[in-house]
């Protein structure tokens, strides 16, 4: 199992989309710039008009860790934590679901996993060619 995400006013759209199986990021309505992590105002054009955009869900592993001691709170086993550079150029921290150790440079694709409270978070799997 895994802990529920922490929802806030400015970020609820992301987690709500996950519950519908959609992987999205914040998009500024007037200037179309994508941002992650989300923020209340677009730092480029200073608009607070926000929407969101579905992403390809594909990216490359930039870095990885596994928290050994203390073990990851709320998990049965500490997961592989990965930093993914998405094809759209944004970065996100997530997990690689795998029995084998992540490798920097590996190509991964988004999927979703349930949390303890029945919510959903984006996780990644290796792309099998």
């Amino acid at each position: 199992m895994r802990p529920d995400p922490i929802k806030r006013i400015d970020t609820a759209f992301f987690w709500d989309a996950c519950e519908q199986g959609k992987f999205v990021v914040q998009k500024c309505e007037p200037c179309n710039t994508l941002w992650h992590p989300p923020r209340p105002m677009c730092p480029k054009c200073h608009s607070v008009e926000k929407t969101h955009q579905k992403l390809s869900g594909k990216g490359v592993i930039m870095s990885w860790v596994r928290q050994v001691r203390p073990a990851s709170y709320g998990f049965e086993n500490s997961p592989f934590v990965i930093l993914v550079e998405l094809n759209e150029g944004l970065r996100i921290v997530s997990n690689l679901i795998s029995d084998s150790v992540p490798v920097i440079g590996e190509i991964v694709e988004v999927d979703f996993e349930k949390t303890v409270g029945g919510k959903s978070v984006p996780i990644f799997k290796r792309v099998v060619d």
Binding site: P5, V81, V93, S94, N95, V121
Partner: peptide, 9 residues
């Protein structure tokens, strides 16, 4: 918010 749910805590 962006690390904790993924076990980087």
């Amino acid at each position: 918010e962006w690390c904790f749910p993924f076990g980087a805590q």
